[in-house]
Design a binder for these strands. Structure first.
Lengths: 244, 244
DNA sequence: CGCGGTATTGACCAGTCTCAATCACGGTGG
DNA sequence: CCACCGTGATTGAGACTGGTCAATACCGCG
């Protein structure tokens, strides 16, 4: 059971990876108000087209961001892990162009836009840090776009699993890297643009090659180098220090 | 031959479509310094990985934003038309994660980040308008992602041509809509994730159906409704007022 | 113990790519 | 004015990735 102050601290840590903040600015972030919510697996907590006045900080679980075609088929455009402010962009664009959904039970902390704008006005460096964070999100999306367009099935999945591993902070030093990953094969397909059937085949391929395996809602990486090679993964685009 | 003040005015107009600005703020934008450059067709003017200290406002022509896989194959992640600040995001993330290239001869006006930050510090509403604009760029990318993933060849091209038509401001009232479009079929393929060969076949299909045609570096739309249907195009994601 | 959702596998089909040849057209030099 | 050339457009044939349909196996849960 995650704690609010820990979550805000995690978000702050992420901001500080990319922006230099004074202690007053840090305190302002840590003091952000909000309300706690627990979202059951599979539930949308921001709906398409909805006008929101709060942003969602993920405390535990995983949240997916979706676009939707008119046929109702979804495409995942981002996965958010604990410490991510999933829709910081809604502060400047309150009408949601994409939905947010809990993949597995997810705990979120909703922070009023009003409060975020206030600390932004008070501390211009914070406002810029927010802008920067949104821009990194864009860079990640751009990378996904690239990956999902140019790589084939196995590479797309390999890239996704490698990226998530780095983002959750699993050390590449570990011999047996593993981390929780509650997505169904259907949902993996929504993120990598494949049929669940094909996801299954590709996963088997990766397993047979001794690269990764998903077992009991967990990713187990057997061969980090090999996985990165297949997925053409290079973590620079994440703009994270300490990664790789 | 476009003029600098007209270009800044165009950019300002775009900002004002999404943000409310005071006249002082408008003047600040119109007064932004910079230097003019003419880029010949096919030349990169921002290179991958380069650290830039100026942002590029497109005055004439078309610029493409690219990501690149390790095999050197490019994927276009955005097309920028006159009035677009192509890499406003570089103000907060100066290390270019994507390259910018002139598609056809392009005139740009490079504005120092320093100046942009200055007006941002002076006018918080402007800073927020910049942030918002970057966010809209992200929304467009998200839409492209969706389109290129979920639609097939003809739909992807139809969507692209419809989007560009709205963005350049061609009125849907015109019986014969047309606008300049200097991309080769190869470049269209880089934006829609297809082989040039397949682009050609899809274009023929669209022409045969009486929807669009590309002739002499110009797009001619014969059937707007039909085009939108095939491309599942709906311009809301552009966040433009006055567009359909 | 049975049920619903998920995973797995097979057979077949469709969209797209690859390779390769040909064509159209604008620019160049004689 | 015309032959030559290079780039981009067009078309065809065959290969391959990934989608569709469908059946079966697995597994947690009430």
């Amino acid at each position: 059971m995650a704690d609010v102050s820990i979550a805000l601290a995690k978000w702050l840590a992420r901001l500080r990876l990319r922006s230099t903040l004074t202690s007053a600015e840090c305190d302002a972030v840590l003091g952000l108000p909000g309300s706690l919510e627990v979202i059951p697996a599979g539930r949308d907590f921001v709906k398409l087209g909805e006008v929101v006045d709060r942003s969602c900080l993920v405390l535990s679980g995983i949240a997916g961001r979706f676009s939707q075609g008119r046929d109702g088929i979804r495409l995942t455009t981002a996965l958010h892990i604990p410490g991510d402010m999933a829709d910081l962009h809604s502060v400047v664009l309150p009408k949601a162009a994409s939905a947010l959904m809990a993949l597995g039970e997810t705990q979120i902390y909703r922070v009023p836009h009003e409060a975020i704008r206030e600390v932004g006005d008070m501390h211009p460096a914070l406002e810029r840090a927010f802008w920067r964070d949104c821009t990194v999100d864009g860079a990640i999306l751009s990378q996904w776009s690239m990956t999902n367009s140019r790589l084939q099935g196995d590479g797309r999945i390999a890239h996704l699993l490698a990226e998530m591993s780095v983002r959750v902070g699993v050390s590449s030093a570990d011999d047996q890297m593993h981390y929780p990953f509650p997505l169904t094969q259907q949902q993996i397909g929504e993120a990598t643009n494949m049929t669940p059937v094909h996801v299954n085949r590709m996963l088997r391929g990766l397993r047979d090659k001794g690269l990764v395996e998903i077992r009991a809602r967990r990713v187990h990486i057997m061969d980090w180098r090999g996985l990165c090679a297949v997925g053409e993964f290079d973590p620079i685009y994440l703009h994270l220090r300490g990664a790789e």
